[in-house]
Every structure is written in structure tokens, then in C-alpha cells.
Simulated scan of single mutants.
Amino acid sequence: MRFGIDTPDFPDSGCAIVFGGSGGLGMASAGLMAQRGSAIVVTYRSRRDESQQFVEQLRGLGYRAEAMACDVTDRAQVDAVYAGALKSFGRVHTVVSAGGLVFDTGPLADFRPESFRGVIETDVVGFFNIAQAGIPVLREGKGGSFVALITCATQRTVPLDALSATPKAAVQMLVRHIATEEARNGIRANSVGPGVVNGGMVIPMMKTETRKLLDMAVEFTPLGRLASCEEIAEAVAYLASSKAAYITGQALMVDGGLSA
């Protein structure tokens, strides 16, 4: 066994694409991968200004980064992101899916059908578009890695959380299929299941009557606190990196013990 050799986390060439990179988890993941040697493409659907400011910050630190508009439910827009990334950086070695809607919480019987349809379209169809368009791109680049952000609620049923857990469970299964079908092409696929995070979709919950659900989730978390976006990003960057070269088809729960 050899010690003292610092293996680069990411290839010198190519880039990582973070779909949904304008949110808290997406930005944290993109920033950490940039810090560890990867060029970055972040996508946004409506937060153009925030995404451009983030990219300028990365560039100011000497990192290579671009921002591109993308609605992941539109396959043509997803294809355009891959084409743009290849044009700018020559190769895509990492694809992170970090987007999602701010979803309703409550009893399943009370959901509006359009709410359920919306999260399925964004989370499940959106990830399908990302994955199916990305597989040939990663094959062409002689391999790479997918990482999808899901939820720890795929492992432990959280009351009133069906609109989050149901589509993310489908995403988790798609990740497992990529892992088993594409390993021969040097492609790995894993997912990260956050618990309750101090950022992203949780922020609106802090300002509404759903705050009690948030407090309940923290109460049932053994570590007894919210996670930071940076703590989730550590898991994303690790699974995407060469240090996780023998890990595929897995779901890493970063939830303070909530799913234990």
C-alpha cells in the first residue's frame, strides 16, 4: 500500500455540470468541486442574477466556471447544456442533479393533483432527461460520475412528506439502473439523501405554518440540529470524485441519523 501520494479529486480536463446549481445545495456542491480542481457549469431556471454572481465569484478565485439557463423538463434545453459544456471545456466528467421545486407538505389525501404532477415532472422526468442525455456524453469522455440529490425520507417515512419522498425514490431507482447498466462504460452513479438542511427548500418552511414540521424533524434527528449546505456538499463532492472510484449504485444518507 502506498502512502503520501495526493491523488487529484477530478481530472485536469473537462468539467462538472451542476443542474440546479443556483440553489443553496447546488452552489455549495459546485463551489467545493471547483475548489478541488474541477471546472464548473451551473444551470438555473429562473435565478439568473444569482447564478451569474456566483460564477463571477468562482472566476474571481481563479476557478473556471460558466452559468447556463435550463429547464430540466425540456429535453432540448438539457441537450443544449451538454453541448455548451462540451464546447467550453471539451469533456463532461461529472453530472450533479441538485434542482427541485418548493413542494407542498401535508396529508396525501389533501394534495392537489397538479402539485403531485409538478414534482413528478420536475424531479423524475427532469432527472430522466439529465441522465439519458448525459450517458452518451460520459461514455464519449471514457467515463464519469452522476450524483443525484434525493432525501433521507426514501429510507424512513416522514409524515406529511410524500411530495418530496415519492419522486426522489424514483430518482434513486433510476440512479441504481445507471450504476448497473453503465459500469462497463466507466460510469458511476450514486445519490445523496440530505436530512433537514439549513438552506434551499427549508427556508420557506421557516416562515410558514409548516415550521412545526421542521421543528419535529429536528427533534427526531439524533444529532439534534439542521445540516449546513456545505455538509451535504462534502458528500456530493466525495461521491463525484476519484476517491469514490469503487462506489456506485449507493445512496448516502447525510441526515444526522434521522434515517437510522
Results as ranks from 00 to 15, higher is better:
6 D>R: 13
11 P>H: 02
11 P>K: 06
13 S>C: 03
20 G>C: 02
23 G>A: 06
23 G>P: 14
24 G>F: 02
28 A>G: 10
32 L>I: 10
34 A>C: 07
35 Q>K: 14
35 Q>R: 14
36 R>Y: 12
38 S>R: 08
39 A>C: 09
40 I>A: 09
48 R>G: 05
51 S>T: 13
52 Q>A: 06
57 Q>H: 11
58 L>W: 14
58 L>T: 14
62 G>M: 07
62 G>R: 02
63 Y>A: 10
64 R>L: 12
64 R>I: 05
72 V>Q: 04
72 V>Y: 02
75 R>I: 15
86 L>R: 10
88 S>Q: 15
91 R>I: 01
94 T>Q: 01
102 V>Y: 05
103 F>L: 10
104 D>M: 11
108 L>W: 10
115 S>D: 15
116 F>H: 07
118 G>P: 02
118 G>R: 14
121 E>W: 01
123 D>Y: 02
124 V>K: 00
128 F>P: 00
132 Q>V: 12
134 G>I: 12
134 G>N: 04
134 G>R: 04
135 I>T: 11
136 P>I: 07
136 P>Q: 03
136 P>E: 06
140 E>Q: 15
142 K>N: 14
144 G>R: 10
146 F>I: 00
149 L>Y: 00
151 T>G: 03
152 C>D: 10
161 D>M: 10
161 D>N: 14
167 P>R: 07
169 A>S: 15
175 V>Y: 02
178 I>A: 02
180 T>R: 07
182 E>G: 01
186 G>T: 11
191 S>I: 00
195 G>A: 06
198 N>Y: 11
202 V>Q: 13
204 P>T: 06
205 M>E: 09
205 M>Q: 08
205 M>H: 03
206 M>P: 03
208 T>D: 10
209 E>G: 08
210 T>G: 03
213 L>I: 08
220 F>Q: 13
222 P>L: 05
223 L>W: 05
224 G>P: 03
225 R>T: 15
225 R>S: 11
227 A>H: 08
227 A>I: 02
238 Y>K: 00
239 L>M: 00
240 A>G: 08
242 S>P: 00
243 K>H: 13
246 Y>K: 06
249 G>N: 07
250 Q>R: 09
255 D>A: 03
256 G>Q: 14
257 G>T: 12
259 S>D: 05
